[in-house]
Write a protein that binds this DNA or RNA. Structure first.
Length: 296
DNA sequence: GTGTTTGTTATCAA
DNA sequence: CTTGATAACAAACA
């Protein structure tokens, strides 16, 4: 699942390939989550230059330069199963690319495009960017600067890696809420970037039960949670994300953080801290993994 | 056919 | 207006 660390890994990869590159062609294949309409967007993108690649939470932002105007941005959200893979060099007979060094079921293994490729962007560099999305939850959207600012201001809170994510902020958003603490830290409007994997991992590290009502947490627990969120996200970025199912980076490669998972998908296995069997329950409508003994 | 997977939004209730 | 709970979406798999 692409969460902040995964999207940041993709962003850094793409930044090195695409800044300064010019779109030469765009194709959308059996894919509806495109705005404006595909034909129009493809025409608009032609000759657009990539000025910069940004990210907010799990949202990837391409800043564009179109005929000297710098007021448009291409937003790409990977949602659950989206991938952005960049390939350059020798092409297959069909004009695609072979990524034989990668072997991932339902992800990138072998040639691109594959059956889950929903969009292909070609660049003047000769490279192609493949947007694959098994479940078609992801979206591609062109917006003007004004709309982008509005989206960023209304839909995203501070990120764990920003200085504005303070203990005071975490305290303030938890204090008035009776929802489970996990629901609060998953809310992108309050904290941008955590998803199901890192929420469970951070709560385990902080030794907090995911179901506890947010306003019941004590100051020491909030400090521990703040610390855990920052640590987990920072470490996961360093390890290029977690590949549990089908996340891959812009080179089609897996993330390494799966080696460091303490609770996610470890149900029925012994807690790495105390040995108690890890449980899996539903909290805030999500599969939730925790140790009933050392998370209080 | 059923349940499960999750990021986000819609919808409804309080 | 805010908050919380739940369904819905989409596709594949066990």
């Amino acid at each position: 699942m692409p969460e902040l660390p995964e999207v940041e890994t993709v962003r850094r990869d793409l930044e090195s390939y695409l800044v300064g590159a010019i779109f030469t062609d765009s194709k959308f294949i059996d894919f509806k989550n495109v705005a404006p309409e595909a034909t129009f967007l493809a025409r608009f993108l032609k000759k657009a230059k990539v000025l910069a690649l940004r990210r907010k939470g799990k949202l990837l932002i391409f800043d564009l330069d179109t005929a000297g105007k710098k007021d448009k941005h291409l937003l790409i959200h990977l949602k659950m199963t989206g991938q952005l893979v960049y390939a350059i060099g020798k092409q297959t007979k069909a004009g695609g690319h072979s990524l034989s060094e990668v072997d991932l079921e339902m992800a990138v293994g072998g040639d691109l495009p594959n059956k889950y490729t929903r969009a292909i962007f070609s660049f003047d560099s000769g490279g192609k960017l493949y947007f694959n999305d098994l479940r078609k939850f992801g979206y591609i959207k062109l917006v003007a600067s004004e709309e982008l600012e509005k989206i960023l201001a209304t839909s995203y809170g501070p990120e764990p890696i920003e200085s504005s994510f303070t203990i005071a902020w975490l305290t303030s958003i938890l204090a008035k809420r009776t929802a489970p603490v996990k629901a609060v830290i998953l809310n992108q409007k309050l904290i941008a970037g955590l998803g199901n994997i890192y929420a469970d991992e951070a709560l385990f590290m902080a030794q907090i039960n995911p179901s506890v009502k947010a306003n019941k947490l004590k100051a020491a627990q909030i400090k521990a949670l703040h610390d855990a969120i920052v640590k987990v996200i920072t470490r996961a970025i360093k390890e290029r994300g977690t590949t549990f199912r089908n996340y891959v980076d812009a080179k089609g490669k897996k993330g390494n953080f799966i080696k460091y998972l303490q609770v996610y998908q470890r149900q029925k296995q012994p807690c790495l801290r105390c040995g108690t069997t890890i449980l899996k329950v539903k909290v805030a409508g999500r599969g939730t993994h925790y140790c009933p003994s050392c998370q209080k």
